[in-house]
Nucleic acid binder design. Structure first.
Lengths: 120, 120
DNA sequence: CGGGATCCAGGATGATACTG
DNA sequence: CAGTATCATCCTGGATCCCG
């Protein structure tokens, strides 16, 4: 281990952050929450996520101060989620990542085909 | 489901890409490989990764055309990994993400403390 | 050096039912 | 609406041993 590689050290606090947000659902939630959304609205947009996993993901992001949870007052229960200010800064990079996946998907799938063909 | 939300649909190819790279080790490998590195060099820099998981991660990235695997000729076995050109475009956003974790770690840990204090 | 093969435990996840 | 609780299952990941 090179001690100058702080971000890669297991005991570096930033690694703990990466452990938290560097997963598929967290990234997609952060992208969806460009606009504040209610629980079921988020769930509907993230095709395939279960309510259990979405709840866990939101709790994790809330714990890390990246998402704000607000109980709406009204006759029926309603909860709105939104991004906190510290995480809004990441929206640019995230958008680039999403755009990149769309722009490179064909090249990637071609690579997958070639890779899978080798000694099938 | 809003059909305009292509990137969030389970059957959208880009989701498959996110499934592949949106995880902790993949992101760190892509960051480490700014400079081409040999297997054990990568392993040493990524504190805590096991050789098995690193191998799997590299294979996955190679399959998706993001990492190039090159067997070096010499008396002993040597393998060098490097980034392919399509993924180099992501280095900017990745660096921002890494810098962000370092810059916001204190605020985040403060949020964690507050969150954990609630009704301990 | 750079892995592959195997075994195994623990955590993540899906399905389902229930609730303030 | 927005969750919690429980259970069965699956899969990841760690540990270990071996190999060209």
């Amino acid at each position: 281990m090179d001690t100058t590689d702080l971000v890669y050290r297991a005991d570096c606090p930033s690694r703990i952050v990466l452990d938290q947000i560097a997963d598929k659902w967290s990234m997609m939630v952060l992208e969806v929450l460009r606009e504040p959304q209610r629980f079921n609205a988020i769930k509907r947009r993230l095709d395939g996520v279960t309510q259990r996993v979405l709840t866990q993901t939101l709790r994790k992001l809330e714990r890390n101060g990246m998402v704000h949870r607000k109980v709406l007052d009204g006759r029926v229960l309603g909860v709105e989620y939104s991004l906190t200010h510290i995480v809004k800064y990441l929206q640019g990079p995230f958008s680039i990542l999403f755009d990149w996946t769309l722009g490179n998907i064909e090249a990637i799938q071609e690579c997958q085909r070639k890779y899978d063909e080798q000694d099938e």
